[in-house]
């Protein structure tokens, strides 16, 4: 693919699907820094991709071996995933305020999110949850950069600040010993910023263990039973700002 066609839909899709070579990625990053429309298009495509992934969860209910005993029940986790999907889209495109009909549990969370969005009272401008769910090293680095920027700014202005980096899915690689490309940097950041916490998704760890994969986390990494619950039902309700990387 030639970079002259950089703004084509094919190029945008290839970027989101990690199909570009390094020169093309460099071009895309430069473009993303300068071009608002480009960023919005990437955001939309990423949102669509994640929507599809959330609509067909990895641990789809066990496939039926025989007819008549099949089930595709939506688990609570899936409901959370749906809410999270809505949250992500709301964050990127401002779609959150649409009226949906969903079960009570979904409604409750959506209502909470909507209330948070529309009411600025009680916001903790110095509390941030940074969510990473990809193993893409560029995005892992962005998560750390983002957290460091927030904490440095807070230190410079003598404001207390708290940042929680939550990793789930492939993003757990950020916090895995022997796998994380940023283990040393994370250790340094933990020493430098007392208000920084790293949190791993317990469900992701459990799934990896079920596949026979040994998961060893970096020192001082905390484990939350579910990343999505931690984000949606705890941090956002506590008025933390949410950053999706």
């Amino acid at each position: 693919m030639k970079t002259e066609r950089a703004i084509s839909d094919e190029f945008m899709n290839a970027l989101v699907d990690d199909q570009l070579d390094s020169d093309e990625k460099d071009y895309a990053l430069r473009e993303a820094n300068q071009n608002t429309e480009f960023r919005e298009r990437v955001c939309e495509l990423r949102a669509l991709k994640e929507m599809v992934q959330h609509a067909y969860p990895q641990v789809a209910d066990a496939p039926p071996r025989t007819r008549g005993r099949t089930s595709l029940r939506l688990s609570h986790l899936q409901s959370l995933a749906a809410c999270f999907m809505l949250l992500m889209i709301g964050g990127t495109s401002g779609w959150l305020a649409h009226d949906i009909s969903s079960p009570a549990s979904d409604n409750q969370m959506v209502h909470s999110l909507r209330a948070l969005q529309q009411n600025d009272f009680g916001i903790h401008p110095s509390k941030y949850v940074v969510h990473v769910d990809t193993a893409n090293p560029i995005r892992l680095k962005t998560a750390l950069d983002e957290a460091e920027n927030l904490l440095t700014t807070a230190q410079d202005t003598s404001q207390p600040s708290q940042v929680e980096i939550i990793a789930n899915g492939p993003g757990l690689d950020l916090l895995r010993t022997g796998i994380s490309p940023f283990a040393q940097r994370i250790a340094l950041m933990q020493k430098k910023y007392p208000g920084l916490d790293f949190m791993a998704c317990g469900q992701t760890i459990r799934k990896l263990k079920e596949q026979g994969i040994v998961v060893e986390l970096l020192p001082h990494t905390q484990v939350t039973p579910s990343a999505l619950e931690q984000i949606i039902t705890r941090r956002l309700k506590q008025n933390w700002a949410y950053i999706k990387v």
Partner: peptide
């Protein structure tokens, strides 16, 4: 449908 109000508290970093 798109929301007209500016969303400031939830964002995505690319």
């Amino acid at each position: 449908p798109r929301q007209t109000a500016q969303v400031t508290r939830i964002r995505r970093v690319k």
